[in-house]
Every structure is written in C-alpha cells, then in structure tokens.
C-alpha cells in the first residue's frame, strides 16, 4: 500500500522494458456507481496506476474537458465522502495503485486529518493537490505524517533548477513532470525542450518520473514515455470514456505498456 505500492508498480513495468501508463478519470462521471467497473476496465487494459479525480467547482489547473467532466460529476452528487466510501467498498477487488487528484478546498472542508485517515482506510495510495505548492505543504504535512500515502509533486517547465531539485526530492511515489506551460487538455504539439527537462528530473529524482498534460495520441504516448518512466493521460482518456470509445483507451495504454502477449 501507499508510496511503495505506487513506486513498485511503475518500476515493475519499466524493468521489463516497457513504460508506465497512468490514466486519469473523474470519479462520478457519469455516476459513482460506475466507478468500480471503470477501474476494473483500466486495470484490465494494462493501466499501471490510476489517477482518480474528485470534482471541485473551481478547477483552475484544468482545461475544458476536465472542467466538463467535473461538472457532470458534481451534478451526479459526487463528494469526497462518496468517493472514499465507494473505494472502501471494492478496494480489495482492484490491485493497481490509486492516486486521488483534487483541489485543496474540498479536503480542507472535509478536515485534513480525517481525509488522510479515511483515505488510508479506503486503500488510497497517493494524492495530488495541484494548488498546494511546496511552500504551503506545512498545512498538510502534519496531517499526512501518520499515513503511508504518497504526496505527489508536480514540477513544471517554469520551475527553476533549485526548485526542481527540491521538488524532485520532496515527491513520493513518482514525480509528475508537467509537459506544457498551461492547464490540462489535449494538444497537437509538444514542447521542444521536453527532453532536457525530463532528463534533468531523472537525474535529481529518487522516484520514477511520469510526464503528463496535453498528451493525446498513441504516437505522443510512445514519444514522450520514452524520455522518462511513463506518461499520464487525462483529458483524452476522460473524453474517450465519456464517448464510450474504450477500444481507443486500451490502444493508448498499450502504446506505453505493450500488449499482454508481449510481456
């Protein structure tokens, strides 16, 4: 469980010569009752870890696709409490690590100590909170310390070297390399200086480096995952799941992790 579970899952894939793939989906889109089946599908398709969004009314780091998914999830009544309850009820039937991604306010309102305690009990392995930078970590650190949950740090193209070092050392489970200067959402072109960026992250990080934001095609998955330990795909997966195009999600995942036959 927790930090080690995430890191080992990624390393296992990398050691056999493939790359890790982390799909992002929004819990409660279209309804929380489908979460278990959605997670089972992603696991079966070869996902290494799942990043599970909890909706927030004002997601400033997200583009239109995830904003819309969040709206659908809020409309279906999704809350932090409901997501944790759902996970508790079926967690032992899914073996891949689960990382929650949400903004600080819903967690603050839930109560930070309670949130980490309940997350641990629900089998959550890690959390990503994009609006809590390193400087504000004291707010959550004291509440996390008693758990084994990984706090995953984002590092961006605008982070200067001295910050990159601190972020790489502070991150647990994996280091999230944000591949665009911007918000989430599919993009056709990929930043040019990505290679040197990910290279420098690999140098400083004790945990795997996963690249994400704006990745949307199997070609991009192949190209970008080759630079680090794997990729995270959000908007495109959310979109495909919403449209019922599951075949294409499987293709994205397999562009990184390979097909079951190739393992």
């Amino acid at each position: 469980m927790g930090k080690a579970h995430i890191q080992e899952a990624i390393e296992k894939v990398v050691e056999r010569g493939d790359k890790a793939f982390i799909p992002y989906i929004m819990a409660g889109d279209p309804d929380i009752s489908q979460l278990k089946e959605q997670l089972l599908f992603l696991e079966k398709s070869g996902a290494t870890v799942v990043e599970l969004g909890i909706p927030f009314s004002d997601p400033v780091a997200d583009g239109p696709t995830i904003q819309e998914a969040g709206k659908r999830a809020l409309n279906s009544g999704t809350t932090v409490k409901k997501v944790l309850e759902a996970l508790s009820s079926f967690r032992d039937e899914i073996s891949i690590p689960i990382v929650l991604m949400t903004y600080i306010n819903p967690l603050f309102k839930y109560g930070l100590s309670q949130f980490f305690k309940d997350s641990q009990a629900a089998g959550v392995d890690g959390v990503i909170i994009p609006d809590v930078p390193l400087e504000q970590r004291p707010l959550i650190d004291e509440h996390m310390n008693r758990t084994d949950i990984a706090l995953i740090q984002l590092v961006t193209l605008t982070s200067p070297d001295h910050r990159i070092k601190r972020l790489a050392q502070a991150s647990e489970g994996f280091l999230y390399a944000v591949t665009v200067t911007g918000i989430t959402g599919a993009r056709s072109a990929v930043s040019e200086n990505l290679e040197s960026f990910i290279y420098s992250l690999k140098k400083h990080s004790n945990v795997p480096v996963m690249a994400g934001f704006g990745i949307s095609t199997p070609e991009q998955v192949k190209e970008i995952s080759s630079l680090g330990d794997g990729v995270i795909v959000g908007s495109r997966v959310v979109d495909l799941l919403h449209q019922g195009k599951r075949e294409e999600i499987t293709q994205l995942i397999q562009a990184a992790v390979g097909t079951p036959a190739s393992h």
Binding site: A61, P133, E135, Q153, L154, T156, T158, L167, T181
Partner: peptide
C-alpha cells in the same frame, strides 16, 4: 514573510505559477 495574515492568505497556486 510567507504572505500570511495570521492563518489567512498564502500562495495556493499551481507550480507553474510559483516562479511568477
């Protein structure tokens, strides 16, 4: 120094904006 007024304030922004 951290931009806090008692418990209030701070810098709760995505990493992309931190440097700015």
């Amino acid at each position: 120094q951290n931009g806090q007024y008692g418990q209030f304030g701070g810098r709760f922004v995505p990493e992309t904006l931190m440097q700015a």
